[in-house]
């Protein structure tokens, strides 16, 4: 590669320690890698190896103990709480293993929710949310509550919600972890099409079949990168 691809993110010597009742857990012990714009990365590794910790840092949900994390050129490690919130609201789409929808809100209201905090609500908002619901195949479930949907449908609502601010950078922590193989395939198709639009996607998974559909796989062990291979 001679052409320098623009970097969506650049991670250098990232460390994260948790202090739990006096004992320090080194969840990440110095992780470095670059994420070019439009990359599709899977992160694998045994339980407790630091995958979620890494994804939370990439999602600006937490701050590293040491190291730097440049997101589109800005150092996230130096941001204050409000700036982190703003980055989450405007630039990052996050999909959780357990969906994390608000049970009291309808499908459309759940999709719309991040806009409250991005401050971009206008007359066209609802139309855009309906469009997103259509995109994930839930156009006929707009006013349902999460409890009235299957797991795969709920995860699709969560993906639609993560798209509402049109983020270039998407993160998913075991998005198919709770789903059967049919639904897993649906979700992976959806993510693949989002990646095809040019969005950068990083997901955490246990399953080789899931990792096989991504462009690059990073394997973690004990807070270190074991392998980093492009397919």
């Amino acid at each position: 590669m001679t052409a320098v691809a623009t970097l969506a993110a650049s991670i250098r010597e990232l460390r994260k320690d948790y202090v739990l009742s006096g004992e320090t857990v080194h969840a990440l012990r110095g992780v470095s890698f670059d994420v070019p714009e439009g990359d599709y990365i899977s992160i694998m590794g045994p339980s407790g190896s630091g995958k979620s910790t890494l994804l939370n840092l990439l999602g600006c949900l937490d701050r590293p103990t040491a190291g730097s994390f440049l997101l589109g050129g800005e150092d996230v490690a130096k941001m204050n709480d409000d700036q982190l919130s703003e980055t989450r609201a405007k630039r990052i789409g996050f999909v959780f293993q357990s969906y994390n929808l608000l049970p009291a809100l309808t499908v459309v209201e759940n999709i719309e929710m991040p806009l409250y905090y991005g401050g971009r609500i206008d007359a066209g908002t609802r139309d855009r949310c309906v469009e997103l619901a259509n995109l994930v195949g839930l156009g006929n479930r707009l006013d349902h509550r999460p409890s009235q949907l299957s797991g795969g449908q709920q995860q699709r609502v969560a993906i639609a919600r993560s798209l509402v601010n049109d983020p270039r950078f998407m993160l998913a922590d075991e998005p198919t972890g709770n789903l059967d193989s049919v639904m897993t395939a649906e979700i992976l198709d959806l993510l693949a099409s989002l990646n095809a639009e040019g969005r950068t996607i990083i997901l955490v998974t246990h399953e080789n079949e899931v990792a096989a559909r991504t462009a690059r796989t990073i394997v973690l062990r004990d807070g270190h990168i074991l392998t980093d291979e492009r397919r």
Partner: peptide, 16 residues
């Protein structure tokens, strides 16, 4: 608490 976590994760500031 969980609702608060979700809202924060999706970009709500402390102030919100």
């Amino acid at each position: 608490t969980r609702e608060i976590g979700i809202r924060r994760a999706l970009g709500a500031k402390r102030r919100d």
